[in-house]
Design a protein around this nucleic acid. Structure first.
Lengths: 221, 221
DNA sequence: CACGAAGTGGAGGAGCAACCTCAACTTCCG
DNA sequence: CGGAAGTTGAGGTTGCTCCTCCACTTCGTG
């Protein structure tokens, strides 16, 4: 090794056709995962992209890697959503906007929903993206409670559970009325306003318990 | 055939040991289906009953038959629940009692939930049992709306969707906090009281669309 | 008790689906 | 033009569920 050898950037760029195919794969993965979730196989994605299976496996060692590559940016979308929601002057509006916005993303992209609600997909980078998002969501909740508009017994861990509920409706009625979930999110939001004077029971999950649930959950069909 | 041949009651009774085993199978099926849903195989049930697979297949031609034999009575439990709820003097209490009671049954029995929310399990007799139950539920909704306590834009088809939501939470947190679904049913009930003054959108499913959704839904894991 | 009918067990075949490999072929680009 | 890089898809492997089959056991009647 001479002194001139550049130690970084050892990865030489892909051949032009290969780079094109890589993009086709990612594009197809986005579409297929969003429609059918991670139940979809790499074979499905290859077929959708008009490529052989081998090509996909050459580029991505396994489904995990493709997922990783794909959802970090989607999760950053959610983070941006939270940032914009925090700019809302009315804390309740901010909270509600965030909830509706994330539900829109979840209901339009089944893969995203599965990544967000399960801890079985994507490791490092996805987890990191989640971590980046959480404090913003926590702050949205805090503000809405402090303003007296969100019921005081609401907890941070209620957020993913609500997404789980809304997502299951979205999936159930997807072929028949893709927007129906808004109806039930409406009921939930009405139920979450502070004015009811009632108290929720039992208590919400603590973060550890939520983590256990997320690790155990493996979606299918 | 002589005149004396009795045309009915041609089925001769099972041998004593066989009858015992039949009961074991049904008992095991109840337990296994309620824990793991219809994803469970007849092999699983046989093993749980301490019998060979062949024995199960000899008695029940397929999973469908076992399901049919098993859930008609469970659905009648729900009907009785509705009957009792109709006896409540306060219409809202009746409505809420019914919702909590059915959710309790669903969350304790994954198989029951799957039968209720999908049209892919059990045919004739299960469908008939559902039909018997529906008018009672409709009446519960009608009364609660007429009393001005249930929001006026609530529809009959909201009931199964709410069960879908609650059931998905119950499944998600089953191993960690089996009773947590009550918390979210609480939020929903608060949101369903008439006093919010807000209006749900979009509109609820019509019964035909609900049927399509139920036919398409096949639960897994 | 003894015998035939009824019932049982569980290894294993058939069928399917997902995952991934590999060797023959094609394309790129210096 | 030559060799490195890339592509292909039939098919091997694994893992699952469903269900059959027949040698074996048990029942209960004459």
């Amino acid at each position: 090794m001479t002194r001139d050898t550049v130690p970084v950037a050892t990865v030489r760029p892909l051949r032009r056709d290969a780079e094109l195919n890589r993009r086709k794969i990612i594009e197809s993965a986005r579409i297929v995962f969003s429609e059918r979730g991670f139940g979809a196989t790499l074979d499905d994605i290859a077929h959708h992209a008009g490529l052989g299976v081998g090509t996909v496996y050459r580029r991505f060692p396994g489904k995990e890697h493709l997922v990783e590559a794909m959802f970090v940016e989607r999760m950053d979308e959610i983070r941006e959503l939270a940032e914009r929601a925090l700019e809302e002057s009315d804390p309740w509006e901010g909270f509600a906007t965030f909830l509706v916005g994330t539900a829109e993303l979840h209901s339009a992209d089944r893969g995203l929903r599965e990544v967000m609600l399960s801890n079985n997909f994507g490791q490092e980078r996805v987890a990191a993206a989640k971590e980046r998002m959480i404090p913003l969501a926590v702050e949205l909740v805090r503000r809405a409670k402090a303003s007296g508009q969100l019921r005081a017994d609401f907890e941070d861990t209620d957020l993913p559970i609500i997404h789980m509920m809304i997502g299951s409706v979205a999936q159930y009625t997807h072929d028949v009325r893709p927007e129906l979930w808004r109806r039930y999110l409406g009921v939930l939001l009405d139920g979450l306003r502070a004015d009811s004077g009632r108290t929720l029971s039992p208590e919400a999950l603590d973060p550890e318990a939520l983590d256990v649930a997320m690790c155990a959950w493996k979606p299918r069909q």
